[in-house]
Design a protein around this nucleic acid. Structure first.
Lengths: 218, 218
DNA sequence: GAATTAATTGAACGTTCGTTTTATTAAGCT
DNA sequence: AGCTTAATAAAACGAACGTTCAATTAATTC
């Protein structure tokens, strides 16, 4: 046999991308063999090489595309907000939602950096730094405007990124909380972490009521 | 040739363990071939099978031993502190220090869970849950004693774990801050995250001075 | 409808994988 | 000194790896 009826290059390409994301996220890049990938797509493994020169280029392409989309999405989102308080809230909300909705992409981005050859790895790391800088600028501005209390901006940036990215590790769609609810709780925690002015933290004060809906708390 | 002069089973075993930790942390379990491992140790790959039945058992052994040591170390450390405030501070300090000092172990523990066969994976996940429970109990007690303000204990537990574990991702020994200094900053952030009573968060109040040394702040 | 291009198969390539087998030598014991 | 056990080397195993190649058929173009 050879070309199959109804075969279409564009469809096959996106089928390869989708299958690769699923497989790499599930078992890892090294563990995903070209034959496993081909089976998932429903073609022979040789068909792959019409679309990518090799396995490494597939991984790099998936990771770069993901980072491009992430940066674009945040740039778009960040235009809507202006005060440091609003911007930090928006960042955390955006980060958690986007990451939970694109779990495979994010998981691959976090786990498979080491599977990239050095040149490709450096490229992706640069994009990641650019994304983190978005948060750092918010903290900087909040500090300048005396809206935040932060001892160490670099550390706080990393702490917020790590904390919010961590949601992906344990989140399951059937959890007791929706993504939106979780995001709001993390917004609260993030604001408190930077000592945002209008977040009460005394025992009696309770939580700020100006942000997010009332949510059940287990 | 065969047995080499000066060869010693115990020494070879620990040489294998040490080399495997380095290699797996660096390039990943799947990417570490038995020949790479043997080269790192300075033996033939067949020698490995005197010490482990197969590659999987080596990974499982490394991960289980690490978790056992971690649990023991925290149990020992936790006996020294009693109030929720002290206990949370001690946990964060311990977690960061221990994790930074055993980077390879921790990195393997976080990255290679998926390389374990299901039975082994379940075993390690159980140990991880036990460790996280240690933190959860502290938050529980702090809430009961009205020393903490926490909306959601499960989420806050995960946030603190993620935030502190994240240090391992970026920490380098030649950074501007020592491990101890970083740990203290995270203690501050952690305490603020749970609204610990005697941590000031008003703009004028500045940071709590009762915990940790004064440290330069970049 | 013939020629061209796109998409894929099936088989094979050489290499490397984890592991096993067998032989050999060092160390420890009596 | 002779025997036993511990520790390794060297070579080989079949299986699986990423990738290539030639052949073949579907779709498109003229």
């Amino acid at each position: 046999m050879a070309r199959t009826t109804g075969s279409d290059g564009e469809k096959t390409r996106s089928a390869i991308d989708a299958a690769a994301k699923r497989l790499i996220a599930k078992i890892g890049y090294e563990a995903m063999t070209m034959r496993l990938l081909a089976d998932e797509v429903g073609v022979q493994s040789a068909a792959f090489y019409r679309y990518y020169p090799n396995k490494q280029e597939l991984l790099f392409s998936l990771m770069r595309d993901h980072m491009d989309r992430l940066l674009d999405a945040w740039e778009y989102e960040s235009r809507k907000v202006h005060t440091p308080f609003e911007r930090l809230s928006a960042f955390i909300r955006f980060h958690i939602r986007y990451h939970v909705e694109r779990r495979d992409d994010v998981h691959i981005g976090n786990m498979e950096l080491r599977s990239l050859v050095p040149e490709n790895r450096a490229f992706i790391i640069e994009l990641r730094a650019r994304y983190e800088n978005g948060l750092r600028e918010i903290l900087d501005d909040g500090l300048d405007a005396r809206e935040f209390i932060i001892e160490d901006i670099a550390l706080t940036t990393r702490a917020i990124i790590a904390m919010t990215t961590g949601v992906n590790v344990w989140f399951r769609a059937d959890d007791r909380l929706t993504v939106a609810e979780i995001a709001e709780k993390y917004v609260q925690m993030g604001l408190r972490l930077v000592g945002a002015k209008n977040i009460a933290t005394t025992k009696t004060g309770g939580q700020n009521v100006s942000v997010g809906p009332k949510i059940r708390t287990f």
